[in-house]
């Protein structure tokens, strides 16, 4: 019969799953009111928007679908909300997944009435583009010629007041990509050298560690680290949205992970002492 220590090393995964489920549900229902420190990466995004030239266009690129909306939707929301607070005109563009343009549009459309943003005058949706490299290369030369029309009204871009005086990336003052993928390579490789606009990134937590290389080199001005980054941003904006609440189950899940790792290791050492399997 296996000892208690050996059992601690091999807890049935179904118990682990059940515990996690309970913890996430409890965390969502009973948030723990602890403040989250704002890191330098999230502050980088905030400062980039604060310093952006209001005469120039901001571009928010999205590459996420329903699967990662838990992290990417609040990231998109806080960036757009900050742009609207600063009265910056912005354009949405989507790559990689056609769902992305619909989901990002929903976020902007929902926020627009609160800040009196009018489509075509203050913001515009360039829509989904399948070929990121070709599109970005073209936009470096001429945005209007490359994209031709918007997605909502399907009208030529020059008919929208927001596009007045906007030719290429020289007229762009801020770029952010909210993504579940590694699109930053295209942005940094094809666009970064053609504009002075700061480039910010909002990836899922899994993707984030890869980005520190470019933050260190200064090629990425700021980053929102998954849902935690969005929660930090909400704190800077002084709002208590979904992420402020969702950070509790995230915290509890990591605590559960520490406990489980501790139990597994305790089981291993105890078993070794008893001369059992380690």
């Amino acid at each position: 019969m296996s000892s208690f220590a050996e059992n601690l090393q091999n807890i049935d995964r179904r118990y682990l799953y059940l515990t996690l489920l309970l913890i996430v549900v409890i965390g969502l229902l009973v948030p723990i009111p602890l403040p989250l420190a704002v890191g330098p990466q999230a502050r980088g995004v905030y400062d980039a928007i604060e310093k952006a030239d209001p005469r120039k266009l901001a571009i928010v690129s999205t590459l996420w679908s329903a699967s990662t909306q838990g992290e990417n939707r609040p990231q998109t929301r806080v960036i757009i909300e900050h742009l609207m607070r600063r009265k910056l005109k912005f354009a949405l563009i989507a790559f990689g997944d056609p769902q992305s343009t619909i989901l990002a549009y929903e976020v902007a459309d929902e926020l627009a009435p609160k800040y009196g943003y009018k489509y075509g005058r203050d913001w515009i949706n360039f829509g989904f583009r399948a070929d990121i490299a070709g599109t970005l290369k073209g936009m470096v030369r001429n945005i209007e010629e490359t994209l031709k029309q918007d997605t909502k009204e399907r009208k030529p871009l020059h008919q929208f007041p927001i596009m007045k005086g906007i030719r290429n990336f020289d007229d762009v003052g801020f770029i952010a990509e909210v993504s579940a993928s590694a699109n930053y390579v295209s942005w940094l490789g094809l666009v970064a050298g053609s504009t002075d606009a700061p480039f910010c990134y909002a990836p899922t937590s899994v993707m984030a560690p890869e980005l520190y290389t470019y933050i260190d080199s200064g090629q990425i001005a700021g980053m929102l680290f998954g849902i935690k980054g969005a929660a930090e941003y909400e704190r800077m904006l002084g709002i208590k949205g979904f992420t402020t609440r969702a950070i509790t189950p995230v915290s509890l899940t990591l605590i559960l992970l520490f406990v489980l790792i501790g139990l597994g290791n305790y089981g291993m050492f105890a078993s070794r002492r008893q001369g059992g399997k380690a």
Partner: peptide, 14 residues
């Protein structure tokens, strides 16, 4: 989320 919990529990042994 469930898979990460079980994988980390199994893998993190000192």
């Amino acid at each position: 989320a469930f898979f990460i919990i079980s994988a980390a529990y199994r893998a993190f042994r000192i």
